[in-house]
Every structure is written in C-alpha cells, then in structure tokens.
Design a protein around this nucleic acid. Sequence first.
DNA 1: AGGATGTTTTTCAGAAATGAAAAACCTCAG
DNA 2: CTGAGGTTTTTCATTTCTGAAAAACATCCT
Lengths: 296, 296
Amino acid sequence: MKNLSWDDLQIFAHVARAGGLTGAAETLSLSAPTIGRRMLALEQVIGKPLFVRSRTGYALTDKGQSLLRKVKAMEAGARPIEEWLTSGVERPAVRLSAGTWTANFIAENFARVWTSNDPFRICFKTTEARLDIAHREVEIGIRNQPAESGNLASRPTVEIAFAPYVARNHPDPEGSEWVSLGSEEAVTRSARWLLAQEDTSICAWANTPHTLRDVVRAGAGRGVMPCFSGDRDPQLMRAGPLIAELAETQYLVMHNDDRHRPEVRKVIDRLHALFRDHAELCRGDRPIGTSGAEKA
Amino acid sequence: MKNLSWDDLQIFAHVARAGGLTGAAETLSLSAPTIGRRMLALEQVIGKPLFVRSRTGYALTDKGQSLLRKVKAMEAGARPIEEWLTSGVERPAVRLSAGTWTANFIAENFARVWTSNDPFRICFKTTEARLDIAHREVEIGIRNQPAESGNLASRPTVEIAFAPYVARNHPDPEGSEWVSLGSEEAVTRSARWLLAQEDTSICAWANTPHTLRDVVRAGAGRGVMPCFSGDRDPQLMRAGPLIAELAETQYLVMHNDDRHRPEVRKVIDRLHALFRDHAELCRGDRPIGTSGAEKA
DNA sequence: AGGATGTTTTTCAGAAATGAAAAACCTCAG
DNA sequence: CTGAGGTTTTTCATTTCTGAAAAACATCCT
C-alpha cells in the first residue's frame, strides 16, 4: 500500500464530476460504499477535507477544486495510454455460453451487455452442454454450479426459480397434462423432477426449449420453465406454485487469468448487473397472468 | 477493480527504472512477489508483454519502452500534487510510545526511522505504562500484545527473547545472585518469573531498566533483559539460556483511522523493517560474549 | 565443479478491501 | 404532515490481495 494512491486520485476525479458516490459508481467498477471509504482515506492522506458531504451528494471544497485541477493534468497524461491501448487492435471476441432461456434473456437485453462503442465483440454459444472454459472454448459460462477447479473463478448472480406454465387463458391450468423437455441423449433436471412426481401424465416430449415453449403455447399442456422466461411471455401463465426442488443459484464462470482482461471484466460486470436488476423476476416474485399474485 | 489501474502504471515505472522487482520493492511499500503479480496483471490488461523476464531482472520490451514514455507524462502530471501536499504544511508529529529498552534500541537506529527530509517529526514517549491510542495519547505503541479493540490495528514484528545477563568477565556468571526489576507500584513480568523460580536469591532491586543494567554492569549479579538489549552491550554477557516463559511477540499498534496517514504509515513500515532486520538479535540468536555460541 | 549469493516465482495463511444488505437521513411531492 | 425516492453510511460475510517462506534458477567466485 502506497502513500498517495493514483487510483484514488482517479476515483476522486470521477466523484467530483459526478457530484456524488452513486454517479461515480456507475462509471467505475466499484460500489458506492467502497468509493466512500476510499475518498475518506484519500482525505486522510491529504490531510484536508476535499468534499462537503450531504445526503444529496458530494461537493468540492476549495482544496478539492485545487486538487481536481491537478488530477485533470494526470488524466490528460493518461489519455495517450488509453488511446495507445485501443489503436490498431482488432476487437477481441468474448465468447459467452449459456442455456437457451438464458441466452434468450440476454439477447433481449443485449444493449445492457454490449454497445457499438465497446472495443470488443460478443460471441454467443447457446448450448445446454457445458463448454470447457479451462481449455478456452469460451471466456464466460453461465452455469448453475460454481467452478470446481482452482484455475476457474465463479461469481454468483441470482437465484433462479422454476414453475409450471400453461397457455394464457387455458381452461384448466392445473389439471392439464405435462409437456416434458428432454431428448434421448440428455434428460434435463426438470424431466427428472417430472418423473419423480406422483401421478403425472405426460402427453408430449420436446427436445429443445423453444419447441417445448411452442407446444405449451399451443395449449397442449403444462411445461416447466425458469421464471425469468415464463413470466416474461404474455402468451403463458403460471399453472402452479414455484418448484422448490429445481431452484438453483446462477454463476458466471470464467478462467482466473481472464479476470484482468478488461473486455471479459466488463461483460461479467454487466451480466451481473443485468441479472441483479431482474432478481425478483428470476426468483419468481413477478408472476405473470395469475390473479392474486403477491410480491415478495 | 478497474480496467487499467493507475497504481499499476506507477508501479510499472518503478520496475522499469529499477530493472527488476527487488529494486522496485525498495522504493515502493510493496513486496517483490506482489509487484510481480501486479506486473503480470498489467500485461494481461494491456494485452502485450511489457517485460523480458530473467533471473537477473526485468528488461523492457519495445512496447514497454513505449508505455514508459507515456507513464512518465503521468508522473509529470502527478508531481504538482506531491508538491502541493508538502508545501505550506507544518510538519506533524508522530508520537511513539515504547518501553525503555525498545526506545533505546530505536534511538540507536534513529536514522532508520526518521531523516531530516521527512515531512514529519517523531515524539518519543518512553514509558512502561500503556498509553491510550484510542484516545490519541500516541499514534504508535510498541507492545507485547495485539490490539484488543476493533478500532485499533496491530502488526506483529518479531519474537522477543529474554535471557539473564551478567557483567562481562564476571567470575561466576551462573552462580551469582539476581538483580530484580520492579517498583512498589508495578511488578514486571521478569520479576514475577524470578519469584517463581526455585531457590532464587535476590541481592538487589532496581526500579528502572537503566538502573538494573547499571547494577548488573557493576557486577552485583544477574539480571533479566531482552536479548536485543543484552546482546548489544559489550559490558555484558549471557548468564544462562533463553527464558522461554518470557518470550513474547512484539506488536506495532495504531488507530485504524491513522493507517492511511502517510507519516504514520511510513514510521510503521520503517519500524517493522528495522526490527525484521534484527530478528535474529531479538530472538536471541546472536548471543554476545559467551564461548561456543551457535547461530540459529 | 561446487558453494554462495541474488533474483524471480510459487504456495499458503492472514490481512485488507469489497459488495450486499440494512440503516439512517434528507428532499420533495401530494 | 406523511410517504416515496434517492443518497450516504454502517455492518458483516465474502473475496481479493498481500507478505512470509520456500522453491527454483542463474550468475559469480573460489
């Protein structure tokens, strides 16, 4: 730990411009409490108050104004480095593997994950299989288990709940038969759950999630889906309570070495923010199309 | 964690100038392994190797040379901030409390702790009492126990060993009587230890450590001292083995809030380095004046 | 050829920093 | 006056980073 941290000076400039911690947190990959603590520490190193604090934000003192002018000179000094980093570099691709529903959800929120200003590209690999991150098949995997080897890192995001869905306006939602998801090669967790229930009657099988949804939409019967998919579909409604046995924690998994790559870092952070913002939807707290729905 | 760390750029410049990790560690308050990891992470962010690594040090690649030129511009931008920090500021005092032997040891190595270039001053408070750091009686306390309250921080330094000493060339070192340290108000740990021994014969009491040393030097008998004092005194020699019961770990204790104050940080770091460099002496591994002394 | 010295790299336990969640507080609109 | 909304601050569990110690390797001297 050094005396005067250049990183703290950079953060200081962001807080000064944003007028507070929350605005600075949006432009930095740091949380507001962390930024608050670092500004406090910076003031202790400097020995003078830099901010006047209020509940409406942070304003600069005279000393803070003076320091900001100087830090802007450092920012000017840093700009050639940022430009040097991006010039002449082909934009790398961040390969992202996710299950069908998750990929669909991300695709519908794509602007939250990537914009044309980004110096990288996104490569979706939509698959129910688990691709090998350790051997660089993808950079980021969205999984329902944490990484199990030491050279992978995982970051939990949200709880994913599952529930049965049926076509909207189905005459007998909880009395209809089931549509199961699975193929001859792979039996899904929801298919295993289904087989474990007493007195279940399966009227159809689908081998891809899209096919299952289409069959359920057509009114053939009930199907199990994650809530972040089922509860966004205006053609579906709940056909029973949440299925506790299928609830799982979602993880963003990446190689340990890749965590410092800025494009991987940025995608990871954005995915995390995206899912966090839809945490209620994912947990099943926003049921669609059922009367008397309660909010958790 | 941000993408391109300004702190890492600063460290990079130090490594480039020093030609390696070890030299950079001397000018930064970071260890060589830490600097090595940070340079690796910086290269991953940059996407290009910056160094050619060898066992004789780090040399810059062409890309590294290019980056160094740019970072020097940031250093130029940072210089007005460093100057602004030091200009017009009355030098603060760092108050340091330590026991007599420890204060004596530090005073003899004062150039390791303070120089006239430092923008602060040192205030010794030599006492066997424990001064209150939480209520700002001192900034740094050197103690034999870690901090016990949440708002204090402690950093262990070295193991302190104790042994009995006698005047050099005493005719009967291990057969002489004891000189005890203590006063009517405060019985020291070594005095308690003495009373707990079988068949001990105390011929004198001293109420200050300096007085005890003077009496022992005069040949009156054996006295218990910490090894970093006894083994530095050419007028004394060991009069028995190390006293395991009295061994203790030394701690540098400070207020949590003060850790970011650069002058407190600097003194703490220097004291830590000073004691670490004399770790063998403190542990009793450098006995003075006894024949057949072994090196640990 | 072998030992000493000095550097970087790796491993691992502990310290420090972080973010999530909650608490606290202020402002503004109804 | 009250409730909603937005911000900062505090608490605590978790994650990340650090330094100590050891390992590995290269160079230099005898």
